[in-house]
């Protein structure tokens, strides 16, 4: 059962999560435990990695225009930094007393804090990346909203020329995101909606073309062709809105686990 919702986050956190769980179990089973080895060096390596993450994190916050990311990332960075101080304390305490129970507790708390803080940080970053994809999806929706003003062939050519690159970009980004997800149901939902969008795009262009032709000929059937065009636009918008909804899902469908 996947715990992390993207393969990238899973590849980063899964190994450390396993080690921390193992340590917690060993700690509980061993009660007082053996003498701890000198952990000063590995703790120092963690501290250096934390210092780097804090620097890179605040650099990202400073240059980002995403207000939610600016709000979400600092608490996660603080969490990681505070956890690293717990590890430093634990290391100092264990050097003085390799059997110290409070030091072992601090070691576990610190490791858990690093895991949770890094997880929160990666989640904040990931959500920010998702918001970028959603912005692209919304730009397609905005573009689809102007379909109704296309009433001559010249407009249609321009419409197709402008819509194609945005749609291609959206399809590429959603496709990449789908491949990143660990949750099978969400992946399938994205694949289905994306395929529907791809299938409906030529149908839309054809529907607009028929509407424009019918209108320019002054013949009957304008209302019907307009209705058909609007129906296809609505279908496309529904699928894109569904993509936006699924992109924001991070919880797991309980039914799948049953």
């Amino acid at each position: 059962m996947p715990v992390f919702h993207t393969k990238t986050i899973e590849s980063i956190l899964e190994p450390v999560a396993q080690q921390v769980s193992r340590l917690v179990i060993l700690h509980e089973e061993a009660e007082d435990g053996n003498a701890m080895p000198d952990l000063a060096r590995p703790v120092q390596v963690v501290k250096m990695a934390v210092d780097n993450l804090v620097k890179v994190g605040y650099d990202t916050v400073n240059v980002s225009e995403d207000q939610i990311l600016k709000q979400d990332m600092p608490p996660a960075l603080q969490r990681v930094e505070e956890a690293s101080f717990l590890l430093l304390d634990a290391s100092d305490m264990l050097r003085a007393d390799p059997y110290s129970a409070p030091a072992r507790k601090k070691l576990i708390e610190g490791s858990r804090g690093i895991l949770q803080g890094t997880s929160a940080l990666l989640l904040a970053f990931d959500e920010s990346e998702v918001r970028k994809i959603i912005r692209i999806c919304k730009s397609v929706l905005e573009y689809l909203a102007i379909t109704e003003v296309v009433d001559c062939m010249e407009d249609l050519v321009k419409f197709v020329k402008n819509l194609s690159p945005v749609l291609t970009k959206m399809a590429k980004e959603v496709d990449l995101r789908e491949k990143e997800l660990t949750h099978q149901v969400h992946r399938e939902m994205l694949v289905r909606s994306l395929e529907e969008v791809k299938a409906l795009t030529p149908v839309l262009i054809s529907a607009v073309k028929i509407f424009v032709s019918t209108k320019s000929q002054g013949a009957g059937g304008v209302k019907e062709s307009q209705g058909n065009r609007d129906f296809v636009v609505r279908k496309l918008c529904d699928e894109i809105n569904e993509i936006i909804r699924v992109l924001q899902l991070t919880t797991y469908d309980e039914d799948e686990w049953e």
Binding site: A30, P37, V43, L53, V56, V80, F125
Partner: peptide
Amino acid sequence: EQILEAARSIAAATAALVKAAGTAQKELV
């Protein structure tokens, strides 16, 4: 990308630390 790399480094360093601590405990279990 830099964020991901930095997080990867922390995770690897923490896993190594916890493994070192866990090995000492395991000997007793």
